[in-house]
């Protein structure tokens, strides 16, 4: 019975993941391989960034709130791209919130604990999902309609040039594990339902949920990747790497906010405030 329950949990989380995240890894890989009728528009310098404004805006008619379009109306390149990053973060946080609610048991937790789990988990989950949109040369943007090269991002002035490079480095190691969307669904759920976030009231309730997810993940990986014996411990190590990545990211965002003339979305402000 327990085995059947864990399989059901894996299936439920996979379904919730496909329902709430618009760009699955499977879809992203098709875009990245250029196997779509309209390949992504490549942004590799200031000119192509300007052109992206027109091209992607045409694709996005009726979607006035799209971050890329509004951000491209800003004057300075770095500020524009920083706003694009923020827009993607905010969009992913809303998707992650809906996904979290679909994790069995999550919605019954104390509301303040739900907030704490999201506050500390969403960026770790975001960088995990972002890896699906990255290859060694760049990053898919605007729902797969655009592709920004890693070199262009690296060529921006500091500190903006430091924003995405660590995420590329993480993504290259993480993508080498060759997880699919069904594995990622369990991994992202394990990130969110984590019993050792600061300030949780009902730790045992969260640990109970977390244990089922981790157990389901272990069984699922055995079935889905029978030849990769050490995949499960390798993934657990990635949880620690993600925590370090987010700590550094939060520091960098605070530095950008302090030293650059740029604003931070209110949702991101509340997440970063008193985080670490």
């Amino acid at each position: 019975t327990q085995l059947a329950d864990l399989k059901t949990l894996a299936r439920q989380l996979h379904e919730a993941y496909l329902r709430h995240f618009h760009l699955s890894k499977a879809k992203a890989r098709i875009f990245l391989a250029g196997k779509t009728s309209t390949p992504p528009f490549v942004i590799h310098d200031l000119d192509t960034l300007q052109q992206a404004q027109q091209i992607l805006a045409t694709h996005m008619q009726g979607d006035e709130k799209d971050g890329l379009v509004s951000a491209l109306q800003e004057r300075e390149t770095e500020s524009r791209l920083f706003r694009c990053c923020q827009h993607t973060s905010v969009e992913t946080v809303t998707q992650l919130t809906e996904f979290a609610k679909a994790v069995p048991g999550f919605a019954n937790l104390d509301l303040n604990d739900q907030v704490t789990l999201l506050k500390y988990g969403v960026h770790e989950a975001f960088f995990t999902l972002l890896a699906s949109c990255m290859n060694k040369d760049g990053l898919l943007v605007a729902h797969g309609k655009g592709f920004i090269t890693r070199e262009f991002l690296k060529s921006l002035r500091r500190p903006f040039s430091d924003l995405l490079e660590p995420k590329f480095q993480f993504a290259m190691c993480f993508n080498a594990l060759q997880l699919d969307d069904s594995d990622l669904a369990l991994f992202v759920a394990a990130i969110i339902c984590c019993g050792d976030r600061p300030g949780l009231a009902n730790v045992s309730h969260i640990e109970f949920i977390q244990e089922s997810i981790i157990h389901a993940l272990q069984l699922h990986l055995q079935a889905n990747h029978p030849d990769n014996t050490f995949l499960f411990p390798k993934l657990l190590q990635k949880l620690a790497d993600l925590r370090q990545l987010v700590t550094e990211h939060a520091q960098l965002v605070q530095d950008i906010k302090k030293t650059q003339d740029t604003s931070l979305h209110p949702l991101l402000q509340e997440i970063y405030k008193d985080m670490y």
Binding site: K65, G67, S70, R83, Q86, H87, V90, E91, V93, T94, T97, E98, K101, L111, N112, Q114, V115, L118, K119, H265, P266, L267, E270, I271, K273, D274
Partner: peptide, 20 residues
């Protein structure tokens, strides 16, 4: 609770759009 107004709102409403 006041510190995390938007997260509370997102958790309590379904798919509430967050304007940038």
């Amino acid at each position: 609770k006041e510190k995390h107004k938007i997260l509370h709102r997102l958790l309590q409403n379904s798919t509430s759009p967050v304007d940038l």
